[in-house]
Design a protein around this nucleic acid. Structure first.
Lengths: 324, 324
DNA sequence: CTGGGATATGTTTGCGTTACCATACGCAAG
DNA sequence: CTTGCGTATGGTAACGCAAACATATCCCAG
């Protein structure tokens, strides 16, 4: 017991004994068993981060933001990947719960099974923050970027450059974010008095973001074959935009001379495309930081108010793929 | 006690009682407390995977391979990222140990602190497998790809295409793998009776692989300024190669006409470069699978033999950046 | 020199689980 | 009828830790 007090700096322990205890602990390479500690009702100071995949810079930035805050708050982050599989997501979340993490950050996209699992865990009192995954009627804090606004700004930029025929590559109604982006694009078009033509919208495009280079390539090819092809193209994301870029090169179209191309997400490679890609940057790291802050506040009972949706602004990044 | 037996299927429990227990457990949403279980000396069936970063396809493939095997063996994988920081690596590994994982897969590159931590953990009986991180005099199983052979094959391919002046971009003596690749390149040159010229070797190039696009760009620029520039370039990795590719475009050099360019790693984007990149593919997923298999065998005492180095062959992938 | 707070250490208990031991029943062999 | 075995169930202890409580010593005010 005295040893416990010495190590945890609680209660009264004489200086001399404390030093002896710590020396002995050091010699024996003693490490407290956090698992046994938990049996006594204490927190483990660990949180679980569930990711859809780890092959992209999002997850990386997100985790960087999360870790920064958690480190400072004395928590450990454990990660899990579900590779966009619902069963894997369920198992991963359950594993976190079984290992008694104090809270969860969920960065996967919405699915039936996933939503149900989250609902159940919340009911059992697990604090959860989701990122980019809106959930209705569940006590979950949600962080999201304003894709609508970002897309609106980007489309407005293209219109401001004099473009009237603007295509959209990679429409994917089943993906909430792509839909928001499309809506922002459409709203900007309408506000400028331009019609959103169906033949200028190509898709569908399925699967995770990094798999859509080919869709961008195909989409650009389709648009270029039109009688009056668009003079500017808004691609669902940067990977798609880079596929489109390649198609433009193959067709001998100059970018942005013959066709302006813009993406979304501002992946690191975007600045290295030829030409460097105009895109929209999401504050990913900031979303991770905010998620971690909110979660820690929930865990430590500093915030017991109602759960909220935190929308963070996107930033237009103009590069040479849309300007000379 | 009877409930414990019913749930774990150990000892004698009548069919009738077992069903009643399981139904009750289901109704109460009972989940065994794995942490308490561990107090009684049982395994948690969890392993920790330490990664240098998650922004690249290696980590992704590696984890996919690891997870596939672990799922089948009934283990859970928890991931941690250290972002190439030694202190973060130490803390992450310690967190795994504190949470009583049954074994570790370490995919980070060698560092003083990291090596010492691993040595200590091994001494305390923790089964560890490293990937791409050779360690001497430590009871650790090591998986690695044969970078030397891959580089040798790639250089031989370039020589076979008639090249005599072959440059190397991104030499980095502090990075063991890059060094192996350079050695393979040099060996192939010598075997063909070609001299390895110092002015054809550019570097140094620091930092993680994905940060080296710029180095490739700079390197290509440097080589192109030479009086008799190389007709082929072997880049440290695909990112570097893509930087070189961009430099070639800017200089108006045709690839592979004026200069052939090859990379290493076969990242997904390599096939989408313009032109598609000749490169060398590491069996990443297979390395992950093997690591998990070996680790599980160690944990379950099916293998108590001496630790070994498992070298897996690399595969030359010829694309259009070196052939018409 | 006594009472009482501050300081310091020890003892017991229980968290959820399972190994081990004890108990109890039915049935068949001796 | 006893013994012994296979089957079924329950009681108890222990894992490592810390909360709660108990005890012990010291110092100082009254």
């Amino acid at each position: 017991m005295t040893a416990s007090r010495a190590i945890n700096r609680t209660g009264y322990v004489s200086e001399e004994v404390r030093i002896r205890v710590l020396e002995a602990a050091d010699k024996l390479r003693y490490r407290p068993n956090v698992l046994a500690r938990h049996l006594k009702g204490q927190r483990l100071n660990a949180i679980g981060v569930m990711l859809p995949d780890i092959a992209n810079p999002f997850s990386s930035e997100l985790v960087a933001g999360v870790k920064k805050v958690l480190d400072a708050a004395g928590y450990t982050a454990f990660l899990s990947v579900c590779d966009h599989g619902m069963e894997q997501e369920r198992a991963g979340l359950q594993a976190f719960v079984d290992h008694r993490v104090d809270g969860l950050i969920v960065g996967t996209r919405g699915t039936n099974i996933g939503d149900r699992v989250i609902r159940e865990l919340v009911q059992q009192g697990m604090p959860i923050v989701t990122i980019g995954r809106p959930m209705s009627k569940v006590k979950v804090d949600v962080i999201d970027a304003n894709h609508y606004q970002g897309a609106f700004d980007l489309a407005t930029h293209l219109i401001g450059r004099g473009h009237r025929r603007i295509g959209f590559i990679g429409i994917a109604p089943e993906d909430a974010h792509t839909l928001r982006r499309y809506e922002g694009y459409a709203a900007a078009m309408q506000k400028a008095g331009l019609r959103v033509l169906e033949r200028y919208t190509v898709g569908p495009s399925k699967g995770p973001a990094f798999s859509t280079q080919q869709d961008g390539y195909q989409g650009m090819m389709t648009l270029a074959r039109l009688k009056r092809p668009p003079t500017a193209v808004f691609a669902r994301n940067d990977f798609t935009a880079m596929g489109a870029l390649r198609a433009a090169h193959e067709l001998g179209l100059s970018v942005p001379g013959d066709v302006a191309i813009a993406g979304f997400d501002d992946i690191p490679l975007a600045a290295y495309a030829a030409p460097p890609l105009t895109t929209v940057s999401q504050p990913i790291r900031e979303q991770g930081e905010l998620a971690a802050e909110i979660l820690v506040d929930r865990i430590e009972k500093r915030n017991s108010g109602p759960c909220a949706l935190h929308t963070m602004p996107c930033q237009l990044v103009v590069r040479e793929s849309t300007t000379e």
